[in-house]
Design a protein around this nucleic acid. Structure first.
Lengths: 366, 366
DNA sequence: CTGTTAGCGCATTCAG
DNA sequence: CTGAATGCGCTAACAG
């Protein structure tokens, strides 16, 4: 407590100085430590950065001084000197989405281990926020960028790529040959969904779509549709239900799709593949409230494998994305880039998803 | 495309230099702009920082040069000079939790508007990660800290508070007089939950607990219990179901609590208040699978107001936390601190929650 | 192994 | 209103 109150006063001092725009920080600088240890600042710096290059005796001296003074190197000064910030920007379409949150977790664990920090760039489904991320890159506030949004952020006529920073994308093919993509195989999953449902006996299929034109959505839809046709489903009996444009992959979007489904008077699909688990959960809820029994009348397959899918009724059959691992893998690619790897699609990785059968799917009604 | 490829080459150059540890950046420096505009670096700096202090003609000259060169001030240099980083650290217990994610969203929108960036500090339910956040503060990588975890991170014998940085906590009373708390009124919510359930006629109550000893959990539980007793419920008929220690407020924890509930042979509560919505959803699912009908046999009340609660069956009665607003409010307090406000509990704010009645609650069975 | 020296790129005095 | 000069705190050459 005494401690806290002392520190509090110290804090006030800083503030007062800031107010009159006198920058000097109250923290301990390397020079103080050097003086305390009776060595030069260079030695302190070395002792901290590469202890092996310092005589054990002096090292001990320095460490002692560091401990006693509570010294921490000032990161701004170090960043300026080394031209690195040890920070990575992660651009996310929406932070509230559990899938992105989980991917971010993976990124964070991997990056933290490597000594990097994570700055979040939350687009929040609002493209107006893009320019800021481009600025961050250009001003060298970060050493690299991970994109979860599916395209390269721009500011005016400048693209984030022009910053020259290493960039990794974690969505389907972003369409740039110097940006590695680390992603799930959406097209394959779409195909597998079709095969699975047709295999159960379904002949009239639906797809609850994500944001139209989004690379991830396109891949899942195309894969789904093509495989279904290949397996002999009539193209006319494969319906696409558009979700809500502003509500990417969200519950709301699932409600909209379900309403389109319910509006159908005849030849309703007997199985629906949803572009996300949240959509699938909302879809199920909406149609069940209108008397459609799942899986008796309708089978539903989701995509993502979010935890909630195990706690709804019926439990959701879905494609499990290894979200955390995906994040780790993407972060590792960025670290390779930091280590000097050549930028190219050669670093790209496709991660497999796996179908998890639960209660929401069954053969079609007889 | 031509553009990209050019930039790619530029990127390679930087890397090559880094490899031989030659720091010089390839980006445009203020000196270049000054030369281009035919003015001094000081004038460029001023033109960018305070355009009012520069003659319109020169201002135009500078702006032109800035635009043509694509110049962006180097943030490390600026940070070093100004002693501010315009970054805030947000310490989160778990980023996968939708409540924290939503609060973070609020924090982000508010901070971004004020020109601050957000660095995430994800504890991931792992106290071993604390020291890193203390380092970040001490090394002045950020200008301030927002705590969502409920306690002050420590590193060895040093507390994050000793960094002298402004700190705001967004959990129940963190127990430090210089750290403002911006929080929901957990105790009041607990009381209201008891009043609501007793009002419906329930006389045997349960509480599905969050992490034991967590300030938020204590407040909700104490409020709930005290109010129930006040309303005449026998203390012996108020049960506390411990969740899972390592799974704070999560689905898993709800499953554990439900199992404790199911293990009860007699005098089962007819209503359960859960410390979180995820717990409530998992609780409902678990007991329903064992034949307990909700709300006929058992009423369930959650806490948080996450979206999923509207899509489970039955839909979840819960206390709606204004998560986004909470984040905004907390961020605003930090901004006040930046602006020189005195650090004290006087800045604390308590935000009200509101009960949302849905289908999971009803009078007890007759 | 260690000290001296010299910037990193910028914002801010202080003169003019 | 503008330019010259200074140093933020640190790391990395380069000598010794």
């Amino acid at each position: 407590m005494v401690h806290c109150s002392k520190q509090w006063r110290q804090g006030r001092v800083i503030e007062t100085l800031n107010e009159r725009t006198k920058p000097p920080s109250s923290s301990i600088r390397i020079a103080h430590v050097a003086e305390l240890a009776g060595v030069s600042t260079a030695t302190v710096s070395r002792a901290l950065a590469s202890p092996g290059q310092v005589r054990p005796a002096t090292l001990a001296l320095v460490m002692e001084a560091v401990k006693n003074s509570g010294y921490r190197p000032n990161s701004s000064a170090r960043n300026l000197r080394t031209q690195r910030t040890k920070m990575v920007l992660v651009v996310m379409p929406s932070i509230a989405n559990p899938v992105f949150a989980e991917v971010l977790r993976g990124i964070d664990t991997e990056l933290t281990t490597a000594g990097y920090g994570v700055v979040i760039g939350n687009l929040d489904n609002n493209p107006g926020k893009e320019p800021r991320f481009v600025e961050l890159a250009f001003s060298r506030e970060v050493d690299g960028v991970i994109l979860l949004n599916g395209w390269i952020p721009r500011s005016g006529r400048h693209s984030l790529l022009e910053s020259g920073l290493p960039v990794v994308s974690m969505c389907s093919a972003i369409g740039d040959e110097v940006v590695p993509d680390v992603t799930v195989d959406d097209a394959a999953a779409g195909r597998e969904a079709a095969r699975y449902l047709v295999g159960l006996g379904h002949a009239a299929l639906g797809y609850a779509a994500g944001p139209i034109g989004h690379p991830v959505d396109s891949a899942r839809w195309t894969g789904f549709r093509d495989a279904a046709i290949d397996m002999g489903v009539e193209p006319g009996r494969i319906r696409r239900f558009e979700g809500q444009k502003e509500a990417r992959f969200s519950y709301q979007s699932g409600v909209s799709s379900a309403e389109s489904f319910l509006a159908l008077s005849d030849d309703r699909p007997t199985a629906v593949f949803c572009a996300s688990d949240e959509m699938a959960i909302a879809f199920m809820k909406t149609v069940r409230d209108r008397g459609v029994d799942i899986p008796r009348d309708l089978s539903v397959v989701g995509f993502d494998g979010i935890t909630a899918g195990r706690f709804v009724h019926p439990t959701l059959t879905t494609f499990l994305q290894p979200k955390h691992d995906l994040g780790c893998a993407g972060a590792r690619v960025l670290l390779e880039l930091f280590a000097g790897a050549e930028r190219s699609q050669a670093l790209s990785k496709k991660i497999a998803v796996s179908l998890v059968e639960r209660e929401s799917t069954a053969p079609p009604p007889a």
